[in-house]
Amino acid sequence: MKRSRFSRALPMAFPVALLVMMMVVTSSGVVQAASTIETVKNRGFVLCGVTDRVPGFSLHEADGSWSGFFVDFCRAAGAAVLGNADAVQIESYWLDALEGREVDILHAGSTWTLVRDTTRMIDFPGIYFYDGQGFILHSNLGVKSLKDAMTTKDLKVCAIGPSSTARANLEEFIANTGVTWTLVPIQTMDGMWRAFFGGRCDMAIHDRSALVAVHAGRLDDSDDYVVLPEVISKEPLAPAVRSDDVQWRDLIFWVTMATIAAEDLGVNQDNVDDMLAHSTSPEVRRLLGADPGIGVGFGLSDDWAYQVIKQLGNYGEIFARNLGPKTQFKMSRGLNQLWRDGGLLYAPPVR
Rank of each mutant, 00 (worst) to 15 (best):
Trp181Lys: 08
Ala195Ser: 15
Ala13Gly: 05
Phe298His: 08
Leu251Asn: 04
Ile294Ala: 00
Val25Tyr: 14
Lys330Ser: 09
Gln133Tyr: 05
Asp274Trp: 12
Arg120Leu: 10
Ile90Thr: 10
Ala204Gln: 08
Val81His: 10
Ile318Trp: 02
Gly142Phe: 06
Ile160Glu: 04
Trp254Cys: 05
Asp63Cys: 06
Met257Glu: 15
Arg285Asn: 09
Val103Leu: 05
Arg43Cys: 08
Asp264Glu: 11
Pro282Ile: 05
Gly217Ala: 11
Thr36His: 03
Asp190Pro: 03
His215Cys: 02
Arg8Leu: 14
Ile232Lys: 00
Thr152Arg: 12
Ile252Asp: 07
Leu237Asp: 08
Asp221Val: 09
Met1Ala: 14
Leu19Glu: 00
Thr51Ala: 11
Gln32Lys: 14
Lys2Trp: 06
Ser27His: 12
Leu95Cys: 00
Ser67Gln: 11
Arg200Ser: 11
Val103Cys: 03
Val241Glu: 03
Asp303Pro: 02
Ala77Pro: 01
Val88Asp: 03
Ser58Cys: 08
Ile186Gly: 02
Ala166Arg: 03
Leu338Lys: 07
Thr51Ile: 11
Ala159Asn: 08
Ala97Cys: 02
Met203Asp: 03
Ile318Gln: 01
Phe329Asp: 02
Thr152Ala: 09
Ile160Asn: 01
Thr165Ser: 15
Val30Phe: 07
Ile318His: 00
Leu183Asn: 10
Asp221Cys: 06
Ile37Gly: 04
Thr188Cys: 06
Ile309Ala: 01
Ser4Trp: 09
Val103Pro: 00
Asp273Ser: 14
Leu287His: 05
Gln133Trp: 01
Ser209Asn: 13
Leu106Trp: 04
Ile37His: 06
Leu137Cys: 09
Thr180Met: 08
Val350Thr: 13
Arg242Phe: 07
Val16Lys: 01
Val231Met: 08
Arg116Lys: 14
Arg242Lys: 12
Ile122Val: 15
Asp250Ser: 14
His206Glu: 09
Val246Thr: 12
Leu345Asn: 09
Gln269Trp: 02
Val30Gly: 00
Leu288Thr: 06
Leu47Lys: 15
Asn169Met: 03
Leu114Glu: 15
Phe196Glu: 04
Gly316Pro: 01
Ile37Pro: 04
Asp341Ser: 09
Arg285Trp: 07
Leu19Pro: 00
Gln307Lys: 10
Phe329Pro: 02
Asn268Arg: 01
Trp193Phe: 15
Ser28Tyr: 13
Thr113Arg: 14
Trp181Pro: 07
Asp221Gln: 10
Leu211Thr: 04
Gly49Trp: 06
Thr256Leu: 08
Gly64Gln: 05
Asn42Lys: 15
Thr118His: 11
Gly199Phe: 14
Val143Asp: 04
Gly68Ile: 02
Gln187Ser: 14
Ala33Val: 07
Asn271Met: 06
Ala261Asn: 09
Thr280Phe: 02
Met192Cys: 14
Cys158Phe: 04
Val227Asn: 04
Met121Phe: 13
Leu146Phe: 01
Ala168Asn: 10
Ser332Asn: 12
Val16Gln: 00
Val25Phe: 15
Ala166Asp: 13
Thr51Val: 13
Ala305Asp: 05
Gly297Arg: 15
Thr280Trp: 01
Gly293Ala: 03
Met275Ser: 10
Val255Tyr: 03
Val24Glu: 07
Pro325Asp: 06
Ser110Thr: 13
Leu18Ile: 11
Asp104His: 09
Gln269Gly: 14
Arg75Cys: 00
Ala277Gly: 03
Gly295Val: 01
Lys330Asp: 10
Val231Pro: 00
Lys234Ile: 11
Leu170His: 06
Ser233Arg: 02
Met275His: 06
